[in-house]
């Protein structure tokens, strides 16, 4: 099971848990529809596009409405902490949520009790909390953007809004130094997929790959184009791809999707997600050897 947990920007939306499917312009789980636009919805949509293409089990989602007050975040963590042992997921990806360090700590403690702990992936608020709570090394993959890798590199910062100015001003050429600092400070997951003008994939302090083509600069302005990389990485890891290779495939797919969508800064991320099946069809076999699409339900 690929379990994706995060909040949805919808007031009064209850906790929803179950396998997800797409229905028109919405996502549906446990009979309830929610937006696939932005944030966790965009991340789930990207993961779903990849699992559908590969013919594997769709993501199981745990989502709750939260517009910034933290109520949905609390529901999400409570459900995860109480049910993770029985759900027995292979991969868990945590995404948009209030960075509550105490709730993440309780969840990670439950994960550590499991006989076969899942691969742990974090982005967004969950990654902020993991770093701030000193839990980064418990995670297998983080997917930071350039300002977030500066945050991971700054030992004093508990949120990207508080990064030291000399680190925040860093250019893309400085990312390798920030990656080194993040590992030195024990603020990095085993694998980092750093999303930016040039994507860096690192493992245990060493840069394993960089991806910079095709170069589509306007992607930086489009909200959700980092979330899609996290979703794709999660799906590829769930398919059995090594996390470094999964990060590379996700970065390449995202860039190619961006190119094929021919975006402007006004493009919505859903338009890019919609071209992923075509990207996979044209390139995934060449890039990864994932060529034959297995029958539904196989893994």
């Amino acid at each position: 099971m690929l379990l994706i947990a995060g909040t949805i920007p919808q007031k009064d939306m209850p906790l929803i848990a179950g396998p997800v499917k797409r229905q028109g312009d919405k996502l549906v789980a446990d009979g309830q529809a929610f937006s696939r636009i932005q944030g966790t919805g965009a991340m789930i949509s990207a993961a779903l596009a990849a699992t559908e293409y590969m013919g594997i089990e769709p993501p199981y989602v745990v989502v709750a409405g939260d517009i910034g007050k933290g109520d949905g975040t609390r529901l999400m963590y409570r459900h995860l902490t109480e049910n993770i042992a029985s759900l027995k997921p292979d991969v868990v990806t945590l995404h948009y949520c209030q960075p509550f360090m105490n709730l993440l700590t309780l969840f990670v403690k439950e994960v550590e009790k499991m006989d076969k702990p899942p691969v742990l992936i974090a982005d967004a608020g969950a990654m902020y909390a993991a770093k701030a709570a000193g839990l980064a090394e418990k995670f297998d993959v983080f997917t930071p953007d350039p300002s977030e890798i500066a945050f991971l590199a700054d030992p004093a910062a508990t949120h990207p809004a508080y990064i030291a100015h000399h680190l925040f001003g860093s250019e893309i050429e400085d990312v390798p130094e920030l990656i080194t600092a993040a590992y030195t400070n024990k603020s990095a997951a085993s694998v980092l997929v750093v999303k930016g003008a040039r994507d860096y994939i690192a493992r245990n302090g060493s840069i394993m790959a960089t991806i910079e083509e095709p170069n589509v600069p306007v992607l930086e302005a489009i909200g959700g184009t980092g979330d899609t990389i996290t979703g794709l990485t999660s799906a590829f890891v769930f398919a059995g791809v090594d996390p470094v290779e999964a990060g590379i495939l996700a970065a390449k797919s995202n860039r190619m999707g961006g190119k094929m969508a021919d975006p402007t800064p006004a493009t919505k991320v859903s338009q890019i997600i919609d071209v992923f099946p075509e990207v996979f069809k044209q390139y995934l076999c060449e890039w990864s050897g994932i060529c034959a699409v297995p029958s539904k339900g196989d893994k």
């Binding site: 919808q10 932005q38 944030g39 949905g72 949520c97 982005d123 608020g125």
Partner: peptide, 14 residues
């Protein structure tokens, strides 16, 4: 467009 950030109100503000 708006982008960046990781807290729950960011997709809401978008």
């Amino acid at each position: 467009n708006t982008s960046g950030g990781g807290c729950p109100d960011i997709p809401y503000l978008h």
